[in-house]
Design a protein around this nucleic acid. Structure first.
Length: 590
RNA sequence: GCGCCUGUAGCUCAACUGGACAGAGCAUCGGCCUUCUAAGCCGAGGGUUGCAGGUUCGAAUCCUGCCGGGUGCGCCA
């Protein structure tokens, strides 16, 4: 595909600077000129602010320096003209034919147009979703899933070797609460009556479903007398007690009455059922992982103890009131953190240190974690631990995703994990479809709170930006169907030979927009900002719709017709490539 | 109280990461279907970028201080 126009211009400027340096101008030794797209067409196609940046060190007024730079520019067939504007911008006007060459490039590259090798050879891990397997994914997880998947796909598109991973928290206290909740529901199904713990997973239907499965498969082999279950258990909160002590005692009782093997069975049954559901849900959402990384496995391999040991060897661990603490305040955290509780249990934080340690050991050059923004307080301590262990914490980028708030009929549709009444990702997908969900989730910058308008996402109207973009794609397909219906064939070579017939401003504008796609993909990938792609596609669709409305493609003049068809086929290709990166389909008809 | 995110048109958001007159969509108003899908197009109005300072050739963007919204500050995960 060759170097982009932008890169070629930057290289031209570099050579001009070398010339001036040779002439004895006081230039810094290393200068990498930046060329950017001109925001406004009256400023040409590309612009550089290099003259203003270097005016001071060189000791010349910006415009004078710009003039000398332009005079030193090597000859290039690319350029129509170069001008100085405003305080000292250098504006580049690119030849029309160079602009239209992108059509040929798009049609040749097809699905690969927009891809690049920027990150080639670099291994990156994107860890996202990682929701506790204690229940179905809800709409908050959905945004992390859509965003993480888009970031991963963008990075892969620009050449990184991307590893997508889900960290499964299958070892913590929450999982024990889940196992115990399932078991108590099972006892209910077997005829027992009691007050369900207020801190248990009371939830809607899935706990019962798993309990029912246990009953179907094993009858009453897992029962225990209900008096024994609650004997000596401290009172629950509604009875004036402590809900945490209450549930912890019930967990201990479940383990005691079931014994190791049967308890483990219930525990794993719950874990696997829920994990299967999550996997299936994400699959339907177009989100796939290379690896489901088990927290329990980490502990069983001794990796967590090893991590704590390494911290201790480096002198960052101390003991206080029976617990082991990591002195994270030495590394900028606001307070020290417990890694092992007084009761001997390892904290989630300790597992997380071990997990990230392994990410380094597995050879990733960049690590990306996508977390809910409510976990932001957790970032400094993880980075502190990695720094303490001698790793470069700047290789870890924690991307925080703000909440998505659902609106239906102008009112908030609430969600919460513990109360029985929450909106699952599956509910959302069923209501608006996976395409709309994927699209709306990444429409906004991730650190921006997202107002998710369910009515808008469902509406088949011009308010809905997703339909607007998909419709542009479908329209091109429709044109091609019409071509066939008229008994005509499209000849790409004839169109390419007649590219000079594309004389309309709208055509040049479209070609310019197409030419920006590769840079846009790169920029969106490196900034972790898929919303840039959304805005780009909207703009491209808008330009296409205007072109479509104003001009006929299926004209009698075969050369002109094929030249125009090449252009709109290129538009269709870029729309499809962009939508695919967002995990959204590109329908052939609507 | 401290930390992080955030405040841009009536509403929802952009602004290529410090660049040129701050741009879109929706909503409002006025036009366009005997021609490739009107799920579309064309046009109009709408702004002291929360407020006050500062940094510089140049600020919505960086710094400081206020004001408002969100979120977090467990031997939870």
């Amino acid at each position: 595909m060759g170097r982009s126009v932008k890169e070629q211009l930057e290289s031209l400027l570099s050579r001009a600077l070398d010339t001036l340096r040779a002439e004895g101008l006081g230039l810094p030794d290393v200068v990498t000129p930046q060329v950017s797209r001109a925001k406004d067409r009256v400023h040409g196609d590309f612009a550089s602010n290099i003259a203003m940046q270097l005016a001071k060190p060189v000791g010349l007024p910006p415009r004078v320096f710009a003039e000398r730079l332009i005079a030193a520019l090597p000859q290039s067939s690319l350029l129509e003209k170069v001008e100085i504007a405003g305080p000292g911008f250098i504006n580049f006007y690119v030849r029309e034919l160079a602009v239209f060459d992108v059509i040929r490039q798009v049609l040749e590259a097809g699905e690969d147009f927009g891809r690049s090798a920027y990150g080639a050879g670099s291994k990156v891990i994107v860890e996202f979703v990682s929701a506790n397997p204690t229940g179905p994914l809800h709409v908050g997880h959905g945004r992390g899933a859509a965003y993480g998947a888009a970031v991963a796909d963008l990075l892969a598109a620009v050449g990184y070797d991307v590893h997508r991973e889900y960290y499964v928290n299958d070892a913590g206290r929450q999982m024990h609460i889940l196992a115990t909740s399932i078991w108590l529901r099972y006892l209910e199904l077997c005829g027992a009556h009691f007050a369900f713990p207020s801190n248990g997973y009371k939830s809607t239907g899935y706990i019962y479903a798993i309990a029912q499965k246990l009953k179907d498969e094993h009858g009453d082999a897992y029962t225990a007398p209900i008096e024994q279950v609650f004997e000596g258990v401290p009172p629950d909160e509604p009875q004036g007690g402590d809900k945490e002590l209450h549930i912890d005692a019930l967990i201990a009782r479940a383990q005691e009455l079931l014994g190791d093997v049967r308890y483990r069975y219930v525990f794993d049954l719950g874990l696997n059922e829920i994990l299967d559901d999550i996997r299936d849900d994400l699959e339907g959402f177009g989100v796939r992982f290379q690896h489901w990384y088990s927290e329990r496995g980490l502990a069983e391999r001794g990796a967590v103890n090893r991590a704590i040991e390494q911290l201790r060897e480096r002198g960052h661990i101390y003991e206080q009131e029976g617990a082991l603490w990591f002195r994270s305040t030495d590394f900028g955290d606001e307070k020290d953190r417990v890694v092992q509780r007084a009761n001997g249990q390892i904290t989630y934080f300790a597992s997380d240190i071990a997990y990230h340690l392994e990410k380094y050991e597995r050879g990733f050059e960049r690590m990306i974690d996508v977390w809910g923004a409510d976990h932001h307080g957790y970032v400094p301590r993880v980075k502190a631990a990695l720094t303490a262990l001698g790793y470069d914490a700047s290789k870890l980028d924690v991307l925080l995703v703000q909440f998505a708030i659902l609106y239906r009929g102008g009112k908030r549709a609430q969600m919460s994990t513990r109360s029985g009444e929450f909106v699952t990702l599956r509910d959302l997908r069923e209501e608006v479809g996976s395409d709309a969900a994927r699209f709306f989730y990444v429409m906004r910058k991730s650190e921006q709170h997202l107002d998710f308008d369910l009515d808008l996402a469902k509406s088949q109207s011009n308010d809905n930006p997703l339909y607007y973009i998909q419709y542009a794609h479908a329209r091109v397909c429709s044109v091609m169907r019409q071509l066939a219906a008229k008994g005509l064939a499209h000849d790409r070579a004839r169109g390419e030979a007649a590219v000079a017939r594309l004389e309309l401003p709208a055509e040049a504008e479209l070609a310019r927009q197409l030419g920006q796609f590769p840079e846009l993909v790169l920029r969106a990938a490196l900034a972790y900002e898929p919303h840039q792609l959304v805005h780009y596609l909207r703009e491209l669709a808008s330009q296409f719709h205007a072109y479509y409305n104003g001009h006929q493609f299926l004209v009698d003049d075969a050369e002109l017709r094929d030249a125009r068809l090449n252009l709109i086929l290129a538009v269709r290709q870029v729309l499809a490539n962009g939508l695919r990166l967002l995990g959204v389909s590109a329908p052939e008809s609507m």
